[in-house]
Design a protein around this nucleic acid. Sequence first.
DNA 1: GCAAATTAATGATTTATTCAAG
DNA 2: CTTGAATAAATCATTAATTTGC
Lengths: 180, 180
Amino acid sequence: MGEGERAAESGGFSATRAGAKCGRWNPTAEQVKVLTDLFRSGLRTPSTDQIQMISAHLSAFGKIESKNVFYWFQNHKARERHHKKRRRGPRDEEDDDGDHQKARSRCLASELCAIAGCTKGKQDLFWQRQERETETLELFPLKSCSSDEEKVMSMRSELWGRPFLDAARDPPLDLRLSFI
Amino acid sequence: MGEGERAAESGGFSATRAGAKCGRWNPTAEQVKVLTDLFRSGLRTPSTDQIQMISAHLSAFGKIESKNVFYWFQNHKARERHHKKRRRGPRDEEDDDGDHQKARSRCLASELCAIAGCTKGKQDLFWQRQERETETLELFPLKSCSSDEEKVMSMRSELWGRPFLDAARDPPLDLRLSFI
DNA sequence: GCAAATTAATGATTTATTCAAG
DNA sequence: CTTGAATAAATCATTAATTTGC
């Protein structure tokens, strides 16, 4: 599992698959980490702009497309729910391990929304160039609760504190994602 | 965009919604007709290129986006099946009127695929710019079986035999859609 | 130790369901 | 009530883990 983990600083870039067959996307450990952190920060269904921005920045870690980000969130969301279902046999309805909160399917808590800037169920599947009022909200707030902060920090440092990115290309970056 | 489309010759432009609120897409009668004909010709899940091309040409009849075409086929496919379900009450499981073939959910008959140039389960949801061998196949073959030909012809004439399109913009058009 | 075979994860599509505009 | 739009559930397909026989 933690296979390509060390890839980051050990020099071996894990899954970039530089000259691969262009099969399916194989995310880098760093990409997965960032996506996971975003997810755990509450982001469930990123908007078009969010996806494109996330994709753009994750491309620094390896080949990636917008649709990969879209699919990743879809799958991750669906599978987290399913994994909870089959704990301790078919019975036992209302039980979670302390791993995550409930994160119910319908709408995620407004707090998390506020943190991550979710679209609140208004996703235009990428082709909507529809102009609309776009506020901006900081995706990675410095303030966050305990353990999450560590992850957020590590992600931040990975994204912007690494030699992967030219200082020229991603310099004054604070990754603000727009939402409705 | 050309909004003064002024619609069909009947004067009553059905749904162009020239200065509308940009609510949801309201297809023109001609647009619906073409889409329906395509559907009845066997096209179920048009590919990216097909969608874009269809959309491009249907835009001559009024405001339209690619996603509208995409959604239209999704909904039409799903609802045709559902409409069959509630014929003659809740009972009655396996019954079709002679309107269409079975058109089972999984994969449509290869014949229809050949006619319509379906992607055979390989649809890249619009964002895949992946280069691949794209053969071209005529979407509206002159040859077709009996009743369908009439519809196909009518559609052809509407699309290309009308004054809607400038001869300059769509002149040597034969609408070949690419598929895998 | 190493590949072929098998299983587990998970990326990518398709289908069903739901929401809401008209 | 019809239907465009959007989301979630189910499914397919490919890649990585892993097992297994040599």
